[in-house]
Amino acid sequence: MRTGVKYLLAFLLMLVLTLPQVMAQCAMCRATIENNVSNGDTTVGAGLNLGILYLFLAPYLLLSIIGFFWYKKARRKKKLTY
């Protein structure tokens, strides 16, 4: 139990320490998009939006696949016990 708490605290500490770098990247992307849009190029913004959607979907897809296989294994295991 104590090792779980240590891992959780280490994870939270790393999350808090990397937050400024993450926020800096957002500002850089926004500045690039604003500069391109002011010059009349809107393709970069569309590509960035597609990339955001891709990054948003990937973890949910991975968890869904893991959940599906977990469900199948539990169902098969339950069938074997009866």
Rank of each mutant, 00 (worst) to 15 (best):
L48I: 08
A74Y: 00
S64E: 03
L48Q: 02
L13E: 08
A27D: 15
F69C: 03
A46R: 13
R2E: 15
K6D: 11
T32I: 11
R30D: 14
L62Q: 02
D41Q: 03
G67Q: 05
E34I: 01
G67T: 02
G67W: 00
Q25R: 13
S38C: 11
F56G: 02
P59A: 14
K72L: 02
V37H: 07
L61T: 01
L53T: 04
L19G: 08
E34M: 15
G47C: 01
I65M: 00
T81Y: 06
I33A: 12
F56W: 07
L53S: 09
L15F: 15
M28E: 10
N35Y: 15
M28K: 13
L57M: 08
L50P: 00
P20Q: 01
V22E: 12
R75E: 02
L12Q: 08
G67Y: 03
A10M: 06
G67M: 04
R76M: 08
C29L: 14
F69G: 01
Y54G: 07
G4K: 09
T18F: 10
L55H: 03
G40E: 08
I33V: 14
N35P: 00
L57W: 04
A31N: 11
F56E: 01
F56C: 01
M23K: 07
G51L: 07
Y7R: 08
F68I: 07
N35V: 14
K78G: 01
M14E: 10
L63N: 06
K78V: 14
A46F: 06
I52S: 05
Q25S: 15
G67H: 02
S64W: 05
G45H: 00
A58S: 01
R2I: 03
I66N: 04
A10W: 06
N39G: 07
P59T: 09
L19S: 14
V37F: 12
R75C: 04
G67F: 00
P59K: 09
A24Q: 10
N39M: 07
G45M: 03
K78W: 02
P20G: 06
L9A: 12
M14V: 11
W70K: 05
G4C: 02
S64H: 03
A10H: 05
L53K: 04
C29M: 12
L17Q: 05
T18A: 11
R30T: 13
A27N: 11
T81H: 06
G40I: 07
C26L: 14
L48Y: 13
F69K: 01
L50T: 13
I33E: 11
K77Y: 00
F69E: 01
G4A: 12
F69L: 05
L48S: 10
A74F: 07
M28F: 13
L17S: 14
L62P: 01
L13Y: 13
C29K: 05
I52M: 06
T81R: 06
M23V: 14
T42S: 14
L55E: 05
Q21C: 11
T43H: 12
V22K: 09
S38N: 10
T43G: 10
Y7K: 11
L62Y: 03
M14N: 08
K6S: 13
K6M: 10
R76S: 07
R2L: 15
L53G: 15
K77N: 10
N39C: 07
F68R: 00
I65E: 01
P59R: 05
M23C: 07
I52C: 09
Y7G: 07
I66E: 03
L15G: 12
L48R: 00
R76I: 01
T32F: 08
T32Y: 11
C26A: 12
N36Q: 14
